[in-house]
Amino acid sequence: MDLRAQRLTALVLRALPYGDSDQVVQFLARGRGRIAVFARGARSSKRRFGSALEPFQLCEILVSARAGAQLLSLRESHVVEAHAGLRDDLHRLAHAGYASELAHDLTREHEPADGLFEALAGFLLSLAVSPATSARLRALELAFLSASGLAPQLDACARCGDEVAPGRAALDPAAGGLVCSSCTPPGALALGRGPRALLEQLQQRGLEGAETPLSADGSGRPADARAFEEAAAQAGIVLGAFLVHQLGRTPRSSAFLEQVGAPR
């Protein structure tokens, strides 16, 4: 029995084969959060849903709940934005895969996650038309963490609340952010001046900060693009450890980034 059909705007996170002819698709839907949807016939007949179940696309979907069934069923799916440019570049695909895995792991089924949805949608839109960069990845990670209530505290020591002197900072995942030199536990990863300024800027300005980075001197002038990207890669080591601590595991796709030589 059809209980209710619902039309949703959703990003395809991934689709897994189910038996010979069907698929189970993980969507991140605006207003609904992450949902697992049963797509009957998606494997055996491409006419059924066409290419509308391929990862990283923005789709309009029609889903219905069925009494007694755990999964929603997919009745229609239309591509709104294919992000076709992702398929022209291996590094972009690698970044899109990483973003989708993070989005999956930072959300729970049926819990609305609109902040995360918008961050992922914006990320994919700009990734599809410009080169994959470390800076954009950092902006995404910070936006995801903040949308999940896990944003690292960057403005003061997360343990004692004191100001953290420039050049003497470390990021302590257990404390939830930056720690000053007297609160730094052994083994904490040091965060240099450049990477720290970069994280601050990206936390304030979001994706915009990665697309048009500003100089750290407060002058409002554009930052040196290469130095900024270099700082983003360095910050990635520290923010990556922070993410792994929050997720409780290392994302599978981060090894992929390394293996195909994508910016990290």
């Binding site: 991934r14 695909l93 796709s253 992929f256 293996q259």
Partner: peptide, 11 residues
């Protein structure tokens, strides 16, 4: 095939 989502790399 390479899978960015499953971490299946070239090796």
């Amino acid at each position: 095939a390479l899978s960015p989502l499953d971490g299946v790399g070239p090796d």
